[in-house]
């Protein structure tokens, strides 16, 4: 009988330290059994359980895009037992990945629309997956304007800095990088909180869908900005986090009302969340 709790064995292919506080690292994994890569077919917005024998599992959003072949990547914040252990592992070490889990951003609905992506801090991972996915030549024609607002506390806390600089140069997307503050005199991008930059840079909600990922405080102050711009709750997409174990809606801990964040989410529209108890 198929066992949904059994992770695919993987090997750590590369580790990149993303932020100056060294608390965020991006891990690229390669499947030890090549056929598992096909079984792990995912869509941007999904997550997986990273499994370390003897330590346990943690649910982490997938930061790579399905258009990137040969590996899957996750950017992990050092927080608890599993993530701290993972941060001390090295290239070549063996562990496991279980998934892909959960739902994804509403790609079919986003086709033919302007896409607005708003991210803050280290919640940018599945948004990175989404941007790479949309910019792929096979996919780019499916979407109209792509506008991204991404902010962090200071320049050293931004994820994927090389890619951000490349996206900034492209003419097929509008990239707005911002930091809360900086003492770098050469900083050439925006300074200001994400909600303020959103209000400044996003001018219309016409035919647009907004996807927002970030710390709760950022989401709280971005939501009224989007509503003022005219985004209805059905076109504001959020991705939630919750303590999880099974990842398949069985173990019972990540519910909001009758919805399990791991299986029915993690992606919800603001309209859906308004129907649920505010317990997240």
């Amino acid at each position: 009988m198929e066992n949904p709790y059994l992770p695919y064995p993987v090997r750590i292919d590369s580790i990149v330290t993303e932020t100056e506080d060294r608390n965020l690292k991006t891990f690229r994994f390669v499947f030890i059994n090549p056929e598992d890569e096909e079984k792990f077919a995912y869509t941007p917005g999904q997550f997986a359980e990273l499994s370390i024998a003897g330590k346990g599992e943690i649910p982490i959003g997938i930061a790579s895009s399905p258009t990137e072949k040969g590996f899957v990547a996750f950017t992990v914040n050092k927080t608890g037992v599993v993530t701290t252990h993972l941060h001390n592992m090295k290239e070549g070490d063996v562990m496991g990945i279980r998934g892909p889990l959960g739902n994804w951003y509403p790609w079919e609905e986003m086709e033919g629309k302007n896409v607005v992506i708003i991210g803050g801090g280290f919640a940018f991972t599945t948004l990175r997956s989404s941007i790479i996915y949309m910019l792929h030549p096979d996919n780019r024609p499916k979407f109209k304007d792509i506008t991204v607002v991404y902010g962090a506390r200071n320049p050293g806390m931004l994820l994927y800095r090389d890619e951000l600089a490349q996206w900034e140069q492209r003419d097929d997307m509008d990239m707005h990088i911002t930091v809360d503050g900086t003492d770098d005199p050469d900083w050439k991008y925006n300074v200001g909180f994400v909600p303020a930059i959103t209000e400044d840079k996003i001018t219309s909600a016409d035919n647009a869908i907004a996807t927002v990922c970030g710390p709760p405080i950022m989401i709280r102050f971005t939501q009224p900005v989007l509503e003022k711009l005219g985004f209805p709750p059905e076109r504001i997409i959020l991705s939630l986090e919750m303590r999880m174990k099974c990842g398949i809606g069985i173990c019972g801990r990540c519910n909001i009302g009758d919805q399990y964040v791991c299986k029915d989410g993690p992606v919800f529209t603001l309209a859906q969340l308004k129907q649920l108890p505010g317990e997240y």
């Binding site: 330590k55 346990g56 174990k245 099974c246 173990c251 019972g252 801990r253």
Partner: peptide, 8 residues
């Protein structure tokens, strides 16, 4: 009641 935890 069916809720469970997973531990190593």
């Amino acid at each position: 009641c069916w809720c469970f935890d997973i531990q190593d």
